[in-house]
Design a protein around this nucleic acid. Structure first.
Length: 372
RNA sequence: CCAGAGGUGGCGGAGCGGCCAAUCGCACUAGACUGUAAAUCUAGCGGGGUAACCCUACGGAGGUUCGAAUCCUCCCCUCUGGA
């Protein structure tokens, strides 16, 4: 149990961090985001740099003011895109031609192609920090290389060492002239270092020791949820568990299935970001959760697109008290999804996030009761 | 009654002698999704068999042809215009 205090509010941990990549929690208004109990969200530096650009965000008073997402925000450094844009299964078309979206990874940094117009964008640790400073999220990530799970030991080691060097540079540039609020003259941005090391135990441990020694404000574990199995992922977290700091927040990047969270809080993870509840919601996957007396019982998902829900006038989730479940039926949601009505995405997202909120409450309660 | 257009798989709509069990779209079915190039993607979609393949199919009945959804004849039906 813990609390992360930020300039924009407090986060009770363990916490789930929904993903608002481009400065919007897709399909929800900021008002709904607050209403559904989101206490922290995740935005992405790479995407915000390519569109709309960090200058306009800075002019607008940072991402909080620009987007009106007035909850504590974490920003990703762009490191994940080194992985996702380079190895993504989808083919990119730039000027009608297929071109790699990651041009070059070197000691200095990474060159990306904008996914919109093909412009070359360069990320270095210094630039990532500069961008994230302008974006102005409360909690920011060091620039890392998110290793593909298929990487061999030689590359994994090289990549890890590069990530460590980059972390030192991130710390250096982050302490020069920022992390000081020009409003209240107090530190308001906090930096997380990222543990890498791939699927190799010795590297993971080496990386954990290094990152924890670096006096960052928080520690994150990266290079997971990149295609490895659940078991591998959990193993990788377990390897570094003993090195994780108790007095600093620990974030696990990209992980967030309920069963993962339930298992991994025991390893000392405080916050989890994951696209799952919001992305699946837009695909029509509706969480069904049973919690009694704050104890988590059962977790299921239904696909509201299935014809069996066409005439189903039961509430969306029998065990839920959220706005959606108090007012709407499965048949109505089925109808909205079949017709691709925008409200369907909103209601599904709202409900799934509400479920996540209840789920995390139950996790915290279980810890309080010493059941985890 | 006359003139013209047309009848193809659940629907819309291609094909207009062989490579057609029939492009494509929709619908349907199944699957995927973990630091979001994702309100997306993949696969299946007449019946049967693991498969080569077999059967039934392009309004109906005949016919021409080695071979027809495609050409011919008759019939049935629909739409548009005219009386």
């Amino acid at each position: 149990m813990g609390k992360i205090a930020t300039f924009h509010g407090e986060i009770e941990t363990p916490a789930f961090v929904p993903v608002a990549t481009k400065g919007t929690l897709k399909s929800l208004t900021p008002k709904q985001v607050k209403e559904v109990g989101v206490k922290v969200a995740f935005v992405n530096c790479y995407h915000l740099v390519t569109h709309p650009g960090v200058e306009i965000i800075e002019k607008a008073g940072g991402i909080h003011g620009f987007s009106k997402l007035e909850v504590p925000l974490m920003s990703d450094s762009g490191g994940f895109q080194v992985f996702s844009l380079a190895t993504g299964k989808r083919k990119a078309k730039v000027f009608g031609e297929e071109e790699p979206l990651v041009e070059k990874i070197s000691e200095d940094g990474v060159k990306f192609r904008s996914t919109y117009d093909g412009t070359l964008v360069e990320f270095t640790p210094e630039k990532s920090i500069e961008y994230q400073k302008k974006i102005g999220a409360d909690l920011i990530m060091a620039f890392d290389e998110c290793l593909d799970c298929g990487a061999d030991h030689v590359y994994a080691k090289k990549s890890m060492e590069r990530t460590h060097e980059w972390l030192k540079r991130c710390i250096r540039s982050s302490t020069i002239d920022f992390r000081i609020s020009n409003i209240k003259n107090q530190k308001f941005q906090f930096l997380y270092g990222i543990i890498q090391g791939g699927k190799y135990e010795n590297l993971r441990k080496e990386s954990a020791k290094f990152v924890v020694s670096q006096n960052t404000d928080g520690v994150a574990i990266g290079g997971v949820s990149v295609g490895e199995t659940k078991e591998e992922m959990r193993q990788q977290v377990s390897w570094v568990s003993e090195y994780l700091p108790e007095d600093k927040p620990v974030h696990l990047l990209g992980v967030g299935h309920a069963d993962d969270i339930l298992d991994l809080v025991g390893y000392g993870i405080d916050t989890f970001d994951c696209v799952e509840p919001t992305r699946l919601a837009r695909m029509g996957t509706i969480y069904q959760i049973q919690i009694s007396n704050f104890k988590f019982q059962r977790w299921e998902k239904i696909d509201i697109n299935k014809t069996i829900y066409k005439d189903n006038l039961e509430r969306v989730d029998e065990n839920c008290e959220c706005y959606v479940c108090q007012n709407f039926t499965k048949a109505y949601l089925y109808h909205l999804f079949k017709q691709k009505e925008l409200l369907g995405y909103t209601l599904a997202t709202y409900h799934n996030l509400w479920v996540m909120k209840r789920f995390m409450e139950s996790v915290r309660e279980s810890i309080r009761r010493n059941e985890i």
